Simulated scan of single mutants.
Amino acid sequence: MKTLLLTVLIGVIAGVIDILPMVKMKLEKYAIFSAFIFYFIMPFIIFNTDLFGMAWWLKGGVIALTLAIPIIIIVSKEDKKSIQPMVVMSVILGTFIGVAGHFII
Rank of each mutant, 00 (worst) to 15 (best):
G11V: 06
G11Q: 09
G11S: 01
G11Y: 03
G11D: 07
V12Y: 09
V12S: 02
V12A: 01
V12L: 10
I13S: 08
I13Y: 10
I13M: 09
I13H: 05
I13L: 12
A14W: 05
G15T: 03
G15S: 09
G15R: 02
V16H: 04
V16W: 01
I17N: 04
D18A: 14
D18N: 15
D18I: 01
D18W: 12
D18V: 07
D18T: 10
D18S: 13
I19Y: 03
L20K: 04
L20Q: 03
P21L: 04
P21Q: 10
P21S: 04
P21N: 05
V23R: 03
V23S: 05
V23D: 07
V23L: 15
K24E: 09
K24S: 02
K24D: 04
K24W: 10
M25L: 14
M25F: 12
K26I: 09
K26C: 00
K26L: 08
K26R: 12
L27F: 13
L27P: 00
E28W: 13
E28R: 07
E28F: 06
E28V: 10
K29R: 11
K29F: 15
Y30D: 09
I32V: 15
I32Q: 05
I32S: 05
F33M: 14
S34C: 00
S34I: 06
S34W: 08
S34K: 12
A35S: 15
A35Y: 00
A35Q: 01
F36L: 03
I37R: 07
I37K: 00
Y39G: 03
Y39F: 13
Y39I: 01
Y39E: 07
F40G: 00
F40N: 02
I41K: 05
I41C: 08
M42N: 04
M42L: 15
M42V: 02
M42W: 01
M42P: 02
P43W: 07
P43G: 02
P43M: 08
F44G: 02
F44V: 04
F44N: 00
I45A: 04
I45G: 06
I46L: 05
I46E: 13
I46D: 13
F47K: 15
F47P: 00
F47D: 12
F47L: 14
F47Y: 11
N48Y: 11
N48I: 04
N48W: 05
N48K: 13
T49S: 11
L51R: 08
L51G: 07
L51P: 08
L51D: 11
F52T: 00
F52V: 08
G53A: 04
G53Q: 05
G53K: 06
G53I: 07
M54A: 12
M54E: 11
M54L: 15
M54W: 06
A55P: 12
A55I: 10
W56K: 15
W56S: 15
W56F: 11
W57P: 01
W57K: 03
W57N: 06
W57I: 10
W57V: 02
W57H: 02
L58E: 11
